[in-house]
């Protein structure tokens, strides 16, 4: 097989299109690149779904945790503590077996035992908790002057939050949130190692990398390929989030703009 044929056969293997059988011997570099890249589709899918949905819940949770009403604050605090205080790996296992038990109660839980829904749900809740903590921190550090200005304009309730508090929160939280997004994409590699089955060997990038490492007994080729893909993905995320950051800070004078300084706050969950 030439490399082009390999790409045609395996580029969409992870979502069930193309060649059915995985290569079994004489693994070429091209095969490894194609299949691991094909697995990246899952990582991108999980990351995007969790990021988009988690963002909304995270905002609600942050406002909830900042609320003065006890019945709003306590549930938000507990939610954030439970998902940030326990390993994501255990959360995946727990969710998978919980869905498995619920499946015997009602068939409606059937799709939850497959990765595309069940694992996405766990990742959604998990990233919502981590992002909520970031947004909460930013919400607490909205400058007092901004709030006083909002009061002076007669803004109250939702309009005040929507027009003054929220934009500033986003601006303050954005560098940390970029980090969260990066590590969320890294966390997606745990999915197929934690109970959720890779049906018909349709797995993510790490699944295929491990497949090759197990078959060839040579970890020095597949894992660097995986690393290459993830570094690429990280760079894409940083540049996309950088664009948003520029837009969030566009009203500020050039030298006061928050530079995107990326550190590693939460590394593994």
């Amino acid at each position: 097989m030439t490399c082009l044929e390999t790409i045609q056969a395996y580029a969409l293997r992870s979502i069930g299109l193309g060649e059915r059988l995985l290569p079994r011997e004489d693994f070429t570099l091209c095969q490894q690149f194609t299949l691991i890249g094909s697995g990246m589709l899952w990582n991108i899918y999980f990351g995007l779904i969790a990021l988009l949905t988690g963002f909304l819940l995270a905002n609600a949770l942050a406002v909830g945790k900042n609320s003065e009403r006890r019945w709003l604050r306590k549930p938000s605090e507990w939610f954030i503590f439970i998902f940030r205080g326990s390993p994501l790996f255990i959360q995946f296992f727990f969710a998978y077996f919980a869905f498995l038990s619920l499946k015997s109660v009602h068939p409606a839980f059937d799709p939850f035992t497959s990765a595309w829904l069940g694992a996405a749900l766990v990742l959604f809740l998990n990233t919502a908790a981590y992002s909520a903590e970031i947004f909460y921190g930013a919400l607490r550090s909205v400058p007092k002057g901004d709030l006083e200005a909002a009061d002076a304009y007669g803004l109250t309730g939702f309009a005040r939050w929507r027009r003054v508090v929220w934009p500033t929160t986003m601006r303050l939280a954005w560098p940390a949130y970029t980090n969260e997004a990066i590590f969320l994409f890294h966390a997606t590699t745990l999915v197929f190692f934690s109970g959720f089955p890779a049906v018909r060997q349709r797995g993510d990038a790490l699944y295929y990398a491990t497949y090759f490492a197990d078959k060839t007994f040579n970890p020095f080729v597949p894992y660097p390929i995986l690393a290459f893909y993830f570094i690429l993905l990280t760079l894409v995320i940083i540049s996309l989030f950088g664009l948003v950051n520029r837009r969030l800070n566009r009203h500020l004078p050039q030298e006061r703009r928050a530079r995107m300084r990326l550190r590693a706050p939460q590394i593994i969950r």
């Binding site: 990066i182 745990l190 190692f193 790490l206 995986l226 570094i231 590394i267």
Partner: peptide, 11 residues
């Protein structure tokens, strides 16, 4: 940074 940790563990 930039590479998932589990990949490092397995590697």
């Amino acid at each position: 940074r930039g590479v998932p940790d589990i990949a490092f563990f397995l590697f």
